[in-house]
Amino acid sequence: MALQSLDIKRRSATTTPSAGIRSTPELAKLIDVSKCIGCKACQAACMEWNDLRDDIGTTAGTYDNPRDLTEHSWTVMRFAEVEPEPGRLEWLIRKDGCMHCADPGCLKACPAPGAVVQYHNGIVDFHEEHCIGCGYCVTGCPFNIPRLSRADAKVYKCTLCADRVAVGLEPACVKTCPTGAIMFGTKTDMLKQAAGRITDLKRRGFAKAGVYDPKGVGGTHVIYLLQHADRPELYSDLPDNPSISPMVSLWKGAVKPLTSLAFGMIAVGAFFHYLVKGPNRVPEEREQEVDQ
């Protein structure tokens, strides 16, 4: 949604400067995995606030449902049964969704002007009205978050409830979480909060407890508190050291000097089409439309 244009810090494929007269503190959502009971209230809240309803699916032999992120499910709980030490079972439940990177791969990869924006408060949002359905953000994202809808060829993901936050409310998942596993505030406060929790977890035997705020993407505005911060892969393959795909940097480097946006789009589109193709499931016609 584009109502908060004064708060936009960066837009995809845009070279004109953003509005700069207003500044907001940097915000963050802290997900304390050690407090999460996997109740999925946050998933329900997300569907309700955003008025989305996924299909009634099937059970594949785990508690994960819906099984993956979709254009209707912007957050899902991922349940992992792990034994970090032999004989010591842990059920690590991670709320997956957009990390709202400080250096967002989706925004960098996106060739459509203004389809991806970043606000001064750190939220990375998709403005679907500008989205051309190319799916490059899917490749650009180091966390595999954006989902391209077959129905309208637009991409969707968690907005960190940018609409709620803009009017001083916390994201819907934060409000709903019964155990206080999700917290929201300035990034400084969230890191302070996390520090207290780390002390507590260390006392309870988690020597490697820590924050997940990966530097490879400039830090994130959704940060995790992990019992085993040294082994993020235990948490349903949370990437250890995420960074933006070199392909994105490559084209970014190439496109910068270009002044003609249209030309840039075509060039980049072709380049990507050649390189990736895989994760992008845009209907053929749509792809051609974009290419033309």
């Binding site: 999925k40 998933q43 329900a44 569907m47 309700e48 309803r53 996924d54 299909d55 009634i56 699916g57 099937t58 059970t59 508690y63 449902n65 819906p66």
Partner: peptide, 10 residues
Amino acid sequence: RLNAILQPEQ
């Protein structure tokens, strides 16, 4: 519907 989405099948 919401609950059925979250845990659809026996």
